[in-house]
Design a protein around this nucleic acid. Structure first.
Lengths: 152, 152
DNA sequence: TACCAATAGTTCGAGCTCGAACAAATGTTA
DNA sequence: TAACATTTGTTCGAGCTCGAACTATTGGTA
């Protein structure tokens, strides 16, 4: 039973594709891809915008906290911070009360880059939610909050 | 200006973390992680459940179409199909009218595995949306559809 | 105090996705 | 027909994340 090429006009999405979990996956892949294609500011900064933004909002946190905040493993964060430190965007400082730990801070340059990325991020956000009402966007946002909380 | 460890009771999420794009990323990482931890059925099947489900709903499609359907690149799909073929879940068949192309089909075993995974997927879906009303879930679902369409 | 568990950060190898480049086949156009 | 462009699947190297194992340090307990 083989289909004529020209007759495949309509593809069946399948039950799985109606699941939230799958849609979230699709959306994240497409969103990340689009953002990176759009933003060409300073090195790895765009890729780790979420992390940099979090550091900006919470200066001086431990690496463990940062990892949790962006849903990465502690071990994954090491190389990322190494790079961002090499690019002069981020700084590791010793914690006086605990010699195992590091506080992570943005450099002045890091703060500048975050500000620039924020602009690009807003544009991206607008593109992603184009044609949606405020209420629709809010509903997705609140819903995702609940889903994230459920999965944590 | 360094903070006392015990005084960091409340973390600032930062503007970025309020963005849909960021929440989508968090949700997808957590959801994928949770699903893989839960499901221990046959090899790589769980990881590529979305793909298998799509093949199940659309048997005999070209690899290019499949890649698009799950938001992966053509080149990424090659190794995945190699594995799934090795595990006996999937089959590549030549296309009579185009000697470059392959049709991809599920084997009988593949169909059995998809059915099993579907069960696990429903559980996972329930966990992720626990405590949410039907309307809330629907709002997230529709909203994600629009976002996906915007980013495509 | 001495001992043991827990924690912060790190290293390392495995596995995954990507983009670029390629061969083979097909489509298009002069 | 011949020449060129496009498409399909592929290979390959770079870059990323993960889990497991490790060191150093800190916390808890007998």
């Amino acid at each position: 039973m083989q289909q004529e090429k020209t007759k495949i006009t309509e593809l069946n999405s399948g039950e799985e594709h109606q699941w939230i979990g799958f849609k979230i996956r699709m959306a994240q892949i497409l969103a990340f891809r689009a953002f990176e294609e759009k933003v060409k500011i300073g090195g790895k900064a765009a890729r780790y915008f979420g992390l940099l933004g979090y550091i900006n909002a919470n200066p001086g946190q431990l690496q463990t906290v940062l990892a949790e905040a962006v849903a990465l493993r502690r071990s994954s964060l090491v190389a990322i911070l190494d790079q961002l430190e090499n690019e002069g965007l981020v700084e590791r400082r010793p914690v006086p009360t605990d010699r195992r730990a590091n506080q992570v801070w943005l450099t002045a340059e890091g703060e500048r880059v975050v500000a620039q990325l924020r602009e690009a991020g807003r544009e991206h956000e607008n593109q992603a939610t184009e044609g949606m009402t405020k209420a629709e966007i809010e509903a997705v946002s609140k819903g995702l909050d609940k889903i994230i909380a459920n999965l944590k």
